[in-house]
Design a protein around this nucleic acid. Structure first.
Lengths: 208, 208, 208, 208
DNA sequence: GATGAATGAGATTTCATTCAT
DNA sequence: AATGAATGAAATCTCATTCAT
């Protein structure tokens, strides 16, 4: 879980976790514009401590994204063991639940860390293939459609989370229903993976 | 100095339009964090003039949202004249296209102005009823599901717009496919209108 | 005197002068590490006003240097009209007096603005030639020796100015005595102009 | 844990030297604004250790100045053994060389430690007297003139050291030439020793 | 009515110093 | 004795808003 080379001192590690938890809470409530001072206050540490752990605000956000991505990758791996091609659905449900609980706020998730994002997308593509082979999703569904579905869930989560923390489940129902095999193909062409790469590259989780 | 009752009315109106157009452009490029000074610069007027027209930055944003909502209401009315219950689909496509073209940046659209939002939601409910009656959408689809679909499109648009300006169409394909009549109902219960009201009330189009 | 293209509004121009005067005073007392907030306070304006006039602290310092250099160039021109090769001595005396009065603090003067520095050095070289032709200075004295003399005066001024504001004059006496024609050449080779250029380039009037 | 009365005394002494050496290097490269953390890092010790040896940053700088002054006093003593009144010239050359090599950065040397400064000035006065008696310098040259010459060398060194490490020698040539016996006295009156004391008292080697 | 100069609270970040481990 | 994590004051700079011109 930790990204540093040497193990942190006990209190330092605790502060690190407090800061990340505070960042999630504060960003969740106020968006990425929230001030680092506020985060330090909520974490109960001095602002200097925040900057010892995370040398810039951006580094703090990057760490958050990194941790969320790691969790999502783990979910994809877990889902890959589901039977009968149900892994994809389980994965979508699990990531939705995770983001709803831990990181609903992170507006721009799918970028920043190229390696991890690529791994995640590879795992998702595998889940998609499995689902297709078991006839659980339509044949013209592509891997890029699933990324769009992630953006989509993000939009719903961002809008509803504080008030209706389960609304995303209903929306996911509609999305999954739309992915089921059907008589006619989807009218528009899917986004090409190359173009999606550009999209991800363009939107960094950047402040300012 | 002028002898007419409303001197410079024409200038004032022109400035207003210039400012709104500049705001759309600048917010689109830089997000809502863009400075009002920049907007005034792009509009070619002094920032004092901006503040004469719009007493706060928030008021400027509200006006923008108001105009977008007006356009969306008009689209709903136009769509209501579509035959065979196709109005709902036409409406979804039209609003997507409009937001893609004019307001891709406005992150938080569906709130602020209660009266107009209520009217929009009423019109959308009517389109939904019509679509159901013609068997074009499933019976367990609710009006709140459509609002979630709007949030969803917002998420996709925000993520993809600059690089892949048509990606939202493909996503809408999946959404509409998920709305079609099906053998089994959606697993989760729909969001109640009352709860949705709270969601909308909570999220203001607010900066800072 | 003003460096902006359009004439400033009356109060703006006054504030600009107040800020420059305050900067001289504060830098003089506390060195270039003095805070901009302090300068604004001494000038009697808000800190935002300072930043409207000078977009960075560095810009403020650059302006100060620019103005000092302009004055020095003017002195060189005035000195060029002195009779009998006395221009060089008059120039050294005049710049010493000026720096003692207006800019004793500016630690690193002889750089930043390449064009002006080159002009100044050219004018000084001319003064040197004239002095040599009238037999007022030794033949092995070079233009780079005069720049070193400037650094030298800077060192003396920086050390003595607040307490002994005329000490530099006595030191200049010694320097000028050392420049007078003599039987034997100076033991060490003079700094080459190319090397001096590098020295000037290296030491920018930079903070941080 | 050790059984000796002063455990780790050897370590402590080594740390002290490492820290002083690191301070010279770092201050030389970055100026007195360099952070104490950086000095500790270069010294290879924790910053807690630095603060055990030197209770404040100022104390560290003072120690450095103290050491430099000690070396200079030693040079004055060595120079006193030079024949034919050449001690003064040797001393000036030796201090220049020493500062160029070891303490180019220390901007404000001639103060802080009253006792040592007084001793240094006394030794210098003796060298001056010797030089006068042997007819190597003019009769109207005073001890305070020599301190000004030190300031002067400081200015030249500070400006040129990194790029032209020998430029100060040429400047010293001019200074010494100016000190030689001449037909006419220096035009301005010398700085009185009392006034010079005030100058030295005023300018502390202070940071911030 | 229009302008843009002035304002100052607040943002991010640095760093000398303290103190728990 | 040594370490380096923690601290928070202070620095530079931005920007929504006000108001003199």
């Amino acid at each position: 879980m930790s990204t540093t080379t040497r193990p942190l001192r006990k209190d330092a590690a605790r502060h690190r976790e407090q800061l990340l938890a505070a960042a999630v809470r504060v960003f969740d409530e106020q968006g990425l514009d929230a001030s680092v001072t506020e985060i330090a206050r909520v974490a109960g540490v001095g602002i200097g401590t925040l900057y010892r752990r995370f040398p810039t605000k951006q580094a703090l956000i990057d760490t958050l994204v990194h941790e969320v991505l790691g969790a999502i990758i783990q979910m994809a791996r877990d889902a890959a063991r589901s039977p009968e091609g149900t892994g994809l659905e389980r994965f979508l449900e699990a990531t939705g639940a995770f983001q709803a609980e831990h990181a609903g706020c992170l507006p721009r998730l799918w970028n920043t860390d190229h390696e991890m994002v690529k791994l995640a997308r590879h795992l998702i593509a595998t889940l998609l293939l499995d689902a297709k082979e078991h006839g659980r999703v339509r044949h013209d569904l592509t891997s890029t459609d699933l990324t769009l579905a992630m953006f989509s869930l993000n939009g719903v989560l961002e809008a509803t989370l504080p008030i209706a923390p389960d609304a995303w489940r209903r929306h996911l129902d509609v999305l999954i229903a739309g992915m089921r095999p059907a008589d006619s193909d989807l009218p528009h062409r899917a986004l090409s993976p190359a173009r999606l790469d550009k999209v991800l590259a363009a939107r960094s989780t950047t402040v300012r």
